[in-house]
Nucleic acid binder design. Structure first.
Lengths: 384, 384
DNA sequence: ACTTCTCCTGCAAACCTTTGCAGTACCCCT
DNA sequence: AGGGGTACTGCAAAGGTTTGCAGGAGAAGT
């Protein structure tokens, strides 16, 4: 029913190749002819079939973006950044959600494979070997994970976790807990590794609890267990869990930060709205999205315009597969306070602020977060 | 570089059609042959090219889902519901975000057109005529909008707005304000229409402010203007704006609900976490997502397997294009209280609760929202 | 032994484009 | 008049798959 190139050719009395050129290389066709063709196309409502075009050119001008859970506020900023970056380069982004399920993840890569020029794999839960295998099917860029031989952009959560632990031990906490993330998460492993090391260095005890669902519910459910560890400070895999934990602790009658301190990771917009405001590790999600798109597109210059004269030449120009690491920083707000071993003259949530350079500029989105006219509005303290 | 059907055929010594059948109609090929083919395919890492397959079958088994703003918590539940429904029917969903920009919206429909079997257009900002035109290019189901001749699923926000206004006037408010949504939003028009009528019926004054960006910032920015209207109660286009407004009013030193009442629309998860908890109109987003997928797939049975013998037959089986309307309900929490004209013996936020049947069951997601052990935990009051 | 079936496989057209190559027409120079 | 451009257009192959049709082989029925 929809008009094809042939219909337009017939209607305007030219060969289909001329119609094709009218759209993909207008300068090659006589202005007069071109206008006639365009008019017919317009009249018939013709649009080039992108699937057919992709079949022969090998380029779809689409990018797939697979995320673990679209409902996690961590992802939207990344998605939006990727989209705008892609749009600038005349590409479109198709997003898909895996529900944290590795099987769905694999399935989606296959589904996207031939309809996109590459896939951005965000926080994948699959095994490394599977990812490598899939990368032979479609160009891949992984985000929040390192896979040998694949381009990747990771946020340095290891450093962030270290900062968080140092912040807590600096406040006098000696008994720490870590709420780990989901099984298969590279990020969770990094956090655990780094937090463990930092705790050991500070001679503090660290209990790791998990794996857990990286959601509010996941955090809420662990409140009781956290209490049982006797920890006076907790680091969580992400902000959502921290927020759930906040609620859970509240339900248990524990006050934050007086009885127990909580630190999240991600710095989602929501973490500024909780009571108390959440101390957290800020990750540069937007930058990650942009970078990933750039890496994919750059690596992608080696198009395959028709098979040409066969597999001659050195098609294996697997140039240095870059791995970009983005820095993180600690944003100190109100959910962390002094611990039992703290110097006596210090007290209150913000007591530790003076240990660091005070740069009140916080890179977040909501400029109005600290209205200024209302409560004292302690500015965020940022450590990096 | 990736293996094609021809490679597999050559390797297993059969014709390509046999390979094709091995994958798309296994029962038609001798088990022995089939195994040989499968083995070769496995060895070569062959995967059918979905684009090529779509070209000839006319079916991609993909569905496009276009939303206005993926960062708005309203959408993820809808997306997830659509995804799981689609997955059940062996379809994949590709999501794209328009940034609230009608031009991007149109562009995306074109980009998706030939790569999906249909597009779910969620809260479109385009003109009706443009939508109709696009619907000739690819099957469309619109969500949160009514377009003549197109299948649609809408949530009855009109009814919701009416309930909200009646709730407020019932509490004794006589001066109301409405924070409208973005230009081009059908939902916003519906709300406005219905709210105006309800206010008139109750002989209350209603000031409409807008259009506004449907975000926290959008709500925050209007606090001052709301105050200037002298209204004692406000209804907002969505929860995000209501939450922003809450912050804005707080910054102005106005107390909610003592000085001013606020009602949102959507009942996003976040609205249960604000202080005070937000009174809001709950919309059945998940059901909408599921329904939309079903409508698309059902309307889609009329596949076009090859052009066959031409345009014979009655291809114009444009069967009754259904329009489904989903009910909404009012969830009364703590952001609404009595107004100046209220009976004297009533006071406090929950004072109006007894006016309605008290059904504490709220359909939301977070089962732990009311821990029970903590504060009195007033259960949500639901009106529908 | 002949027909009729069933089961399997191959052939080739079709889907909608893009693009290298070749051909035509015309103009400009010398 | 002849040579060399330039500007445009047509031809046909190619991309990877599906599928109606027909043919071959063997089994079963008469």
């Amino acid at each position: 029913m929809p008009a094809t190139i042939r219909d337009v050719a017939r209607a305007s009395g030219v060969h289909i190749s001329t119609v094709s050129r009218t759209f993909s290389a207008p300068h090659l066709v006589n202005p007069e002819t071109r206008n006639r063709v365009l008019a017919c196309a317009e009249r018939l409502g013709y649009r080039p079939n992108r699937a057919a075009r992709a079949l022969i050119t090998g380029r779809t001008h689409n990018i797939g973006l697979i995320v673990a859970d679209i409902a996690n506020p961590f992802f939207p900023p990344l998605i939006k950044a990727a989209e705008s970056q892609a749009r600038q380069r005349d590409y479109h982004i198709f997003v898909a959600d895996t529900n944290e399920d590795p099987a769905v993840e694999e399935d989606l890569v296959h589904a996207l494979a031939k309809q996109v020029d590459g896939v951005l794999l965000c926080s994948p839960r699959m095994s490394n070997s599977l990812i490598e295998q899939l990368s032979r099917e479609v160009p891949l860029v992984v985000i929040n994970r390192q896979v040998a031989g694949l381009p990747a952009v990771v946020m340095d959560v290891g450093q962030g976790a270290r900062l968080a632990i140092e912040h807590l031990t600096g406040l006098g906490h000696r008994d720490l807990a870590l709420l780990a993330g989901p099984r298969g998460s590279w990020t969770s492993r990094e956090i655990r590794r780094s937090a463990t090391a930092a705790a050991r260095a500070a001679e503090a005890r660290l209990t790791v609890l998990g794996p857990n669902a990286p959601t509010e519910d996941g955090g809420f459910a662990m409140a009781e267990q956290v209490r049982r560890t006797g920890a006076t400070a907790v680091l969580t895999y992400n902000d959502l869990m921290a927020i759930g934990l906040l609620e859970g602790l509240d339900a248990l009658g524990l006050r934050v930060p007086q009885d127990i301190s909580v630190v999240g990771i991600d710095d989602i917009a929501l973490s500024r709205l909780t009571r108390p405001k959440l101390t957290t590790v800020a990750t540069p999600t937007a930058a990650a999205g942009r970078t990933a798109v750039d890496m994919l597109l750059q690596h992608d210059k080696s198009a395959s315009p028709r098979t040409g004269r066969g597999r001659s030449g050195t098609s294996d120009d697997r140039r240095t597969t870059a791995q970009v690491t983005l820095q993180t920083e600690l944003v100190i707000r109100d959910s962390t306070g002094v611990g039992p071993a703290a110097p006596a003259h210090r007290a209150g949530p913000a007591a530790a602020a003076d240990r660091y350079a005070t740069s009140p500029a916080v890179p977040g989105s909501h400029g109005h977060a600290d209205p200024g006219s209302a409560a004292p509005a302690t500015p965020d303290v940022v450590v990096s």
